Simulated assay, not measured.
Amino acid sequence: MTADWQWENAVAGSVAGLATVTFSHPLDVVRTRFQVYDGRNPNLPNYKNTPHALFTIARSEGLRGLYAGFLPAVLGSSISWGLYFYFYNSAKQRYMKNQDESSARIHLASAAEAGGLVCLLTNPVWVVKTRLQLQNPQHHGRPYSGLSDAFKTILKDEGWRALYKGLSPGLFLVAHGAIQFTAYEELRKIIVDFRHKHNSLSDNSSDLLTTGDYAALGASSKLAAILATYPFQVIRSRVQQRPSTYGVPRYIDSRHAMEKTARLEGIRGFYRGITANLLKNLPAASITFIVYENVLNLLKRTRKD
């Protein structure tokens, strides 16, 4: 794969990420607030369920509340997806030169490599997004006024290390992308092979797959990844919370968060907000891969012309 093809993947990935965030952000706000709620923080409201959370936030905070942290989410998602698809396809082509490797192993290694690089580059953006999403009328202290103010305040009050809180569970979450992309690629290959055997009119895999196929593949691969890795998302959100007005963090580090969650909340604590997460991510994954595959196909056709 040439550099031009890799950048086409990056552009398609960025457009897909932007479409995904715009559609699903209110559910992302709800998920984040559920994830960090442990029943012991007076600064966090208690919601009964996802519909109640959406209604309460809309009523008490308006559209601003439902789209809290939208700018860093857009930047982070667009940059992350663009870099992810670029690094993933670049790594996949490199690994494919070794004919001894199986396709599943190639996809897994490529996704893991891409996820690790993206995590290191974008963690500060996710810290800011999480903190902006957790701001609510019950919040004490001076709130961040926006993306720029959040970055400046964090650097001033806590130092640059604070921007890398949650990096450890974030690196473990590399497995999320690895599982998702491996499942997507393998399921896609099965469908293409099946269609190819029953359709001799085209050798192009993109001609054998429909928008419905991309939607189903995106959702099913995402479901597998969520069920396997969701506890790491909860721990990352908890660690990335803003310290109290006295500068004391609720959780010292990821290990402390895991131990405290397990002791006080049990297994249920590690899956808080998963309903909102599924409602957000399954359709979002479908949209992401529909947009990605169609934009990529368009760029390929434009390049040929």
Rank of each mutant, 00 (worst) to 15 (best):
D28A: 15
R263D: 14
I79M: 06
L278N: 03
Y67N: 04
N9W: 03
F194V: 09
T211N: 09
F55S: 13
K300E: 09
V234Y: 02
G269L: 03
R268E: 10
A68C: 08
W160E: 10
L282T: 06
N43L: 12
K129E: 07
G146D: 14
T153A: 12
A257W: 01
N281P: 03
R142N: 13
P42Q: 10
T211A: 14
Y47C: 09
R301N: 13
T122F: 01
K92M: 05
L201H: 11
K304E: 11
I252K: 15
R301W: 13
L75Q: 05
A104S: 14
Q99W: 05
T229F: 07
V127I: 09
R40Q: 14
N136M: 09
Y84G: 01
R272E: 04
L108D: 00
A162H: 06
E101H: 08
D149R: 07
N297A: 15
I235G: 00
L75D: 02
A276I: 05
Y37W: 15
D305I: 10
Y144R: 03
L278F: 09
A58P: 05
A10N: 01
V295C: 06
E259V: 15
G266F: 09
T122R: 01
L167H: 03
G273V: 02
G13E: 02
D305V: 11
Q35V: 06
L278Q: 05
R255D: 12
S200P: 05
G170I: 03
N277S: 14
R188A: 06
L278K: 04
F23C: 12
L120E: 11
A19H: 03
